[in-house]
Design a binder for these strands. Structure first.
Length: 476
RNA sequence: GGCCUUAUCGUCUAACGGUUAGGACGGUACCCUCUCACGGUACAAAUCCGGGUUCGAUUCCCGGUAAGGUCACCA
């Protein structure tokens, strides 16, 4: 029984650019599972491909995970008992295990040039056969001097059947097995080799990974056998599909940098909630969950097999739900940067009306309009409906009169009281969102304002103080 | 092309042989209302197709179809 073995998971991205939802979800599941079982979560960087490396990727990865609250116990920046966590600094380990394989007769230098290999591939293709390197194994292998790629010699060509924590029993024929490269001619290991050694040395118990690795699993299993080690538990995650078409979500399909969501004003807990549910659910009707609740409910058994499309509308809704769950103080702090000209007191009063009307804090950017100082405008209405429908003009006028009366009966503490008059639509400035404007004299300045704006700010509450603050906003 | 995987409303999903196939997002309608919104109620909407197994298949098996993955000195 492995029941008593401490859970160790890892997230092992390569530093080739920004992180998008796919990678983040893999990290999230590995993290949630480790936390659920009081295990260890490791952040390892797989930087064995110098050509594809993008500078700044590592800080970016760290920033992304940190934003989401996915914190690691061991990793590139914090260190740990199995340091280093950067593969380019672990070459000794790979060489050590490579030597073990060589000694066992399970590894040999690849004598072919790239051109020769290319030719062999083309030849196989023209014969409509599958190219397998192991069909062209050199007869006499020399000692490996490190200048040629080191290949794995598959000990036994056979079919494999294995267990996956999500997919159940998986299998593949012998065609899936080939002599893959362990160490490249530049001295760096390939992913295929490095991740197995690292997971072994770091004591990783569960490997969460995307389903593109199913195809190469027999190669890994074969390597585990050659090294005489037990493979970790494999946890294959379902693909995330792009919103358009039916393709797996990739950077070219518009997969966004996860930090873009932060810039758009999404909350990290909403993002975590959203990503967690893209391929998993707790089996209850609860859809809005905090990270601790997700950890508590998380289980491998409930991870889905089939892919899921990214649905930003649902993310938007989730974000709204999480915004509403926030404390007054947190909401206030989030809104402040978008409405710098407002006093804390005023923002505090307006908070409920604001939060009810937006799905992300980022929306405040378009809602707060600088042309009148700063105030909240409402979304545009269809003019025709208000102005031309049989009795609608009457209704609109009545509303307007009501607001005007309210304003005029109020005793404002501003130096000059507000004078309001109704201006017909024809005289309005024709702005899309200005209907039946009130001409207002505010602090000595004449302004045309949309009366609905005031009510929009007010919501249903007509108390004097609220109207007053609305007018202050307009007067700013 | 070889190998592999997947398949329930438009989307995310529940169901682990017996349900009027449930929920959520989105949509529509109505209610609330001095606009917008919030809230409330209701409606429309799905088991890919064909065979088996079974008293009974969304569920198990086989075949088809469709979609996806993979066949690198990338991860």
């Amino acid at each position: 029984m492995n029941e008593h073995k401490k859970v160790v998971t890892r997230f092992a991205p390569s530093p080739t650019g920004f992180m998008h939802v796919g990678g983040v979800r893999t990290a999230l599941y590995a993290w949630a599972f480790a936390r659920k079982h009081n295990g260890t979560f490791i952040l390892r960087i797989e930087d064995t491909d110098k050509a594809r490396e993008v500078e700044g990727s590592i800080p970016h990865i760290i920033e992304s995970l940190t934003w989401l609250g996915i914190e690691w116990d061991e990793g590139v920046d914090v260190g740990g008992p199995n340091a280093p966590y950067l593969q380019s600094e672990r070459l000794e380990s790979y060489r050590k295990y490579a030597q073990i394989l060589i000694d066992k007769g399970y590894a040999y230098p690849d004598p072919y040039s790239e051109e020769e290999l290319q030719e062999l591939r083309q030849q196989a293709e023209s014969e409509k056969k599958v190219f397998l390197y192991r069909d062209h194994r050199p007869e006499n292998t020399e000692a490996w001097d490190g200048t040629k790629p080191l290949r794995f010699k598959v000990p036994e060509i056979k079919s494999y059947t294995w267990q996956d924590a999500v997919r159940g029993e998986l299998s593949a024929g012998p065609e899936a097995l080939d002599d893959f490269i362990l160490i490249k001619s530049d001295g760096y290991p390939t992913y295929n080799f490095a991740h197995i050694i690292d997971d072994l040395e770091m004591g990783v118990t569960h490997i969460m990974r995307a389903d593109e690795f199913i195809a190469s699993t027999p190669k890994f299993l074969s390597l585990y056998e050659a090294l005489d080690i037990a493979p970790p538990i494999l946890v294959t995650l379902p693909p995330i599909l792009a919103p358009e078409g039916n393709k797996k979500l990739g950077k070219r399909d518009g997969a966004k940098d996860i930090l873009e969501y932060r810039n758009e004003g999404y909350l990290p807990e909403a993002m975590v909630n959203f990503l967690a549910f893209l391929g998993w659910n707790p089996g209850t009707d609860q859809e809005v969950m905090t990270p601790p609740e997700i950890i508590e409910a998380f289980s491998l058994e409930r991870i889905h097999k089939a892919g899921a499309m990214l649905n930003e509308e649902k993310l938007l809704w989730l974000n709204k739900e999480h915004m509403r769950k926030q404390s007054h103080d947190k909401q206030l702090a989030a809104i402040k940067p978008y409405m710098p000209d407002f006093s804390e007191d005023m923002l505090s009063k307006l908070l409920p009306s604001i939060v009810d009307r937006i799905s992300t804090y980022g929306e405040l950017r378009s809602v707060v309009q600088p042309e009148f100082g700063f105030f909240l405008s409402r979304p545009p209405l269809e003019k025709e409906r208000i102005l031309y429908k049989d009795d609608e003009p009457g209704v609109a006028l009545r509303h307007l009169q009501h607001i005007k009366d309210l304003l005029e009966t109020m005793d404002f503490s501003t130096p000059e009281s507000i004078k309001a008059s109704i201006m017909p639509y024809a005289e309005s400035e024709g702005k899309g969102n200005v209907l039946w404007p009130l001409r207002m004299s505010l602090s000595g300045q004449e302004k045309s304002v949309d009366p609905f704006t005031i009510l929009y700010v007010l919501g249903k509450d007509e108390s004097t103080s609220r109207i007053e603050s609305a007018c202050h906003i307009l007067a700013l």
